[in-house]
Design a binder for these strands. Structure first.
Length: 443
RNA sequence: GGAGGCGUGGUGUAGCGGUUAGCAUAUCGGCCUGUCAAGCCGAAGGUCGCGGGUUCAAAUCCCGUCGUCUCCGCCA
């Protein structure tokens, strides 16, 4: 049995072997599967970048794994000669393998990750996310997440936006609406930020155009397939806009950049997840809030006129309509009533009861909310008064407006929802690494 | 917060008044020369979530309880 590793072999990754045909190389990773067929044996090793197969007709080569009956996920160093073969998955494989165990695993996993499909209830899948997320399909989801974030940054950087990091521990329970998590801050009450909204607006006064990628916290006791209590928000805010349509144009470009990047850099992941790129037209279809309600009455016979907001059912109907009429997976809904929007929302100058705000529906699910904000100090004082909210807790925020802010606006994309809709998912938790919901605080 | 559904070996499930509680997969043993969700043979593994009740008899029916999922409200 060979156990001595070549002294000078330097490690390569599973996705690099094609460049080493004929050479003896070293890879390191996890035992993904081991198939002993008698006369020929296959070991699939998984590293952080993919998988590679080793083949041997001599089972003794696999003795370090087989004799102590080590389980999948054992960490090993594997050396072998790279051979091109039509029979090999990916076209290349390692021959004459030698194996050295780095970290042995002696018990089988609670949820198998060596199969093509993950067979586990949602509960078990999430309970064991620590290991289940090693599954190639789970990996693929979060590679897509990384690609989305990377493209978001790259696109906005290119446009001259500055990335910011705003505090997640805040003093006051800001916007109203969503409940906040209270924490003990050295004996004083504080809260986890439900949105970077105030800070990103303030930073428009500094950099003019800003964005942030970060967590937001919602203490709402909602228990649905599309809600969790901590999620990743892709936030944008910028100044010197004409109105919310300026913001919507930037949003469309951002989404285009994200989907293009996924297509370019994640073809394998998309294929593995059986995902297709959504249709995002150059001109995304748009409907006014009141027109949307009239359309629902006309098409579905349900009278939701007078409701201050769209229900999830309404949004699904609108999504179907956009798809049928425009072939688009996206639909802007603009002009929501002021009554349902936060106090900093800018009204429509023509119709003061309606706002210069929008939602973007993706497949009939709310993906983005955005709009134009108030920018005059006096307007803020009036808005707070109208909302029966005190001025004092907002003193720092209002300082920005007191001393000069341009017309501005922005939006926030829910990262996990983007992935859920892209992948045709049924539960937001499945596109979240370690979801936090009402009943789940671990892992 | 409101309404439904579901809890059966590690995992996914069948059974829905009387079964030695079935199947698949994983595990262990044997066989197997191209697997890629490998295959074949065999073994081990379950007090059917928990607590009451009905019945000659409960995984199965009823009540409670805990857990979990789905839908609605709210939002990204």
């Amino acid at each position: 049995m060979q156990t001595h590793m070549t002294q000078n072999a330097s490690r390569i990754h599973s996705n690099e072997i094609a460049a080493y045909v004929g050479e003896r190389v070293q890879v390191q990773g996890w035992v993904h599967t081991l198939r002993l067929l008698g006369g020929v044996n296959f070991l699939v090793l998984r590293d952080g970048r993919g998988t590679v197969q080793a083949v041997t007709e001599d089972e003794a080569n696999l003795a370090p794994l087989v004799e102590p009956a080590l389980q999948p996920e054992t960490v090993i160093t594997l050396e072998g000669v790279v051979v091109a073969s039509d029979q090999a998955p990916g076209g290349f494989e390692l021959h004459q393998p030698t194996i050295e165990v780095i970290t042995p695993v002696t018990e089988p996993l609670p949820v198998l990750i060596s199969k093509k499909e993950i067979k586990a209830s949602l509960t078990n899948l999430l309970d064991h996310a620590v290991t289940v997320n090693r599954h190639p399909r789970r990996q693929a989801i979060f590679r897509l997440a990384a690609a989305a974030i990377g493209a978001f940054r790259a696109h906005l950087n290119q446009r001259g936006f500055i990335e910011i990091q705003t505090p997640k521990i805040v003093a006051s329970a800001t916007e109203g609406g969503a409940n906040v998590f209270a924490i003990d801050y050295f004996g004083r009450p504080a809260y986890l930020a439900q949105s970077p909204q105030f800070y990103k607006q303030i930073m428009v006064g500094v950099f003019e155009s800003v964005y942030e990628v970060g967590p937001v916290f919602r203490a709402e006791p909602h228990d649905t397939a599309r809600h969790i209590n901590e999620y990743v928000s892709l936030d944008v805010e910028f100044g010197f806009i004409r109105d919310h349509f300026t913001v919507m144009a930037v949003l469309r470009d951002v989404l285009t950049a994200i989907f293009s990047a996924m297509e370019e850099t994640c073809a394998g992941e998309l294929a593995m997840l059986n995902a297709h790129m959504p249709v995002l037209p150059d001109t995304v279809p748009m409907i006014d809030f009141t027109a949307a309600q009239a359309l629902i009455l006309e098409r579905h016979g349900v009278d939701v006129r007078g409701e201050p907001d769209l229900s999830p059912q309404d949004e699904r109907w609108l999504g179907e309509w956009a798809s049928a009429k425009y072939g688009s997976d996206f639909l802007f809904v603009v002009g929501y009533p002021m009554s349902k929007r936060p106090f900093y929302t800018h009204p429509d100058p023509e119709r003061p009861l309606y706002s210069n705000s929008f939602d973007l529906l993706f497949g009939g699910v709310e993906l983005v909310t955005g709009g134009q904000r108030l920018h005059r100090y006096a307007d803020y004082l009036a808005a707070l008064k109208r909302a029966d909210m005190p001025v004092e807790p907002f003193a720092s925020y209002l300082e920005a407006f007191r001393y000069g802010m341009p017309p501005h606006g922005g939006f926030a994309i829910g990262l996990e929802r983007l992935l859920m809709q892209l992948l045709g998912g049924t539960n937001l938790r499945l596109t979240t690494l370690f979801p936090r919901d009402m009943g789940r605080l671990t892992p």
